[in-house]
Amino acid sequence: MSGTGDMAEGELPAYAERVLAVAELIPAGRVMTYGDVAEWLAGEAQDEGPAAQDGGGRGVGGPRQVGRVMALYGGAVPWWRVVRADGQLLPGQELRALAHYRDEGTPLRTAARTAEDHIPRLDMRRARWDGRPDDGAAP
Rank of each mutant, 00 (worst) to 15 (best):
G3P: 00
G5V: 05
D6T: 10
M7D: 15
G10M: 06
Y15H: 13
Y15P: 01
A16E: 07
V19H: 00
A23F: 03
E24P: 03
E24Y: 08
L25M: 11
I26A: 05
I26Q: 04
P27E: 05
A28C: 10
M32W: 06
Y34H: 15
G35W: 05
D36W: 03
E39Q: 09
A42K: 10
A45T: 06
Q46G: 02
G49E: 06
G49L: 03
P50L: 13
G55K: 13
G57I: 12
G59P: 04
P63S: 15
R64H: 09
R64E: 08
Q65R: 14
Q65N: 11
V66F: 01
V66G: 07
M70E: 06
W79E: 04
W79S: 07
R81T: 00
R81L: 04
V83K: 00
A85T: 09
D86I: 05
G87S: 07
Q88N: 15
Q88C: 13
P91D: 01
G92T: 05
Q93A: 11
E94H: 09
E94Y: 10
R96F: 14
R96C: 09
L98F: 01
H100V: 05
H100F: 07
H100I: 00
H100Q: 09
Y101R: 02
G105H: 12
G105R: 07
T106A: 05
T110H: 11
T110Y: 00
A112N: 07
A112F: 00
A115E: 02
D117A: 15
P120T: 00
P120L: 01
L122K: 00
M124S: 12
W129F: 15
P133Q: 12
P139L: 07
P139H: 08
